[in-house]
Amino acid sequence: MSVDVPTGAANAHEANAAGTVPLQLVHLAHARSGDKGDTANVGLIAYDPDHFDLLREQVTAERVKAHFGEMVEGEVERFELPNLGALNFLLHGALDGGGTISLMNDAQGKVFSTALLRMEIDVPADVVETVADRGRVPEGWSVEDYG
């Protein structure tokens, strides 16, 4: 299934000449999203403050706009919160009118957060090894362990 294609973590041995490999943001950052009218916001927060510069350099407004494609009709704006190791994105025209107008299941943009975490950026191979296990339920975890 295309949702579960191996991420950069699994491809760590395939580092390119620059010593980087593509890695999904889910291993580098967590996120939360919400709505304001027809605009969704996504706050992207580095797990490790040392990785904030990777996000700042590569997760640009242009890249995010391209990532979402037809899901975002308007512009994408980006704001920086370096003290939180975070970027905030405004995705204009993402919610089919928003509020009670929208026919979307996700009319309030609640899960645009993890949709952004699907995006891949180029990450140094040595960093990939340290973050590969982040962001997903650990292997062997079951709901028996929850709570």
Binding site: N41, F79, L81, L84
Partner: peptide, 13 residues
């Protein structure tokens, strides 16, 4: 706390 600060955030400045 960081996640909540960013929730429904516009221009943080």
């Amino acid at each position: 706390i960081a996640e909540q600060i960013l929730y429904e955030m516009g221009d943080p400045s």
